[in-house]
């Protein structure tokens, strides 16, 4: 039950994009088409789960015993960058279909601050390995939900008569604002807070 609540908090109540402001670059960058939004979300789910597990193991079994905690920022970003590269190579060889689907989105993920952010949050919250996995999957699915919803709305407003200065990004920010307001409605669900 605790794990379910953790998942729900990560997925809805503390939605990573709309309420925690992580991963905004891909959120606005690739949300103009539904198809690319789904591709990006799949890549994020895959990499976020994997990188959370690896950074957690690295932190608790290497950095802490060796008293190298101050190297956390540097090691995490390098591990994530190389992990993305390895994933790309591995998928190219072993799962060409999946590679083709994720394709161009994988390299973009290195600079997605949600990935590194979740790695830090898992440490700061003192999660166990099981909690880390559940939290990472919840956050990634929450990212997907927000991105897919946003892409759907942006496709619909493409031909709407928007005032000229608001075309493109500004109107997308207003949409995000309204979506965040809607997501605030989940606060209090099962007693979960922001």
């Amino acid at each position: 039950m605790d794990l379910f609540l953790l998942f729900l908090a990560a997925f809805l109540v503390n939605n990573i994009v709309l309420l925690r402001f992580l991963g905004l670059c891909p959120f606005f960058g690739v949300s103009s088409k539904l198809e690319t939004a789904i591709g990006m979300s799949m890549a994020v789910i895959f990499v976020m789960t994997l990188s959370s597990i690896i950074t957690w193991l690295l932190y608790n079994y290497i950095l802490v015993p060796l008293h190298l905690v101050y190297l956390r920022t540097a090691t995490f970003i390098l591990v994530i960058a190389s992990l993305v590269q390895f994933t790309e190579l591995f998928l190219k060889k072993s799962a060409p279909a999946l590679y083709k689907a994720l394709g161009i989105f994988l390299p973009l993920i290195t600079t997605n601050c949600a990935i590194l952010g979740v790695a830090f949050l898992n440490i700061d919250y003192g999660h166990s390995i099981i909690q880390t996995i559940v939290y990472a999957i919840g956050v990634a699915l929450g990212f997907m939900l927000a991105l897919v919803l946003m892409a759907g709305i942006r496709e619909r407003i493409e031909f709407a008569p928007i005032p000229k200065p608001f075309k493109g990004l500004p109107i997308a920010f207003i949409l995000a604002s309204l979506m965040a307001l809607a997501f605030l409605g989940f606060v209090g669900l099962f007693g979960l807070s922001l």
């Binding site: 925690r20 200065p165 608001f166 990004l169 997308a172 920010f173 995000a176 604002s177 965040a180 307001l181």
Partner: peptide, 16 residues
């Protein structure tokens, strides 16, 4: 102060 306000302010600043 809540998250939606942040999105709204930056939208208007960008348009401005």
């Amino acid at each position: 102060i809540l998250p939606p306000g942040g999105f709204l302010v930056i939208a208007f600043l960008m348009a401005l």
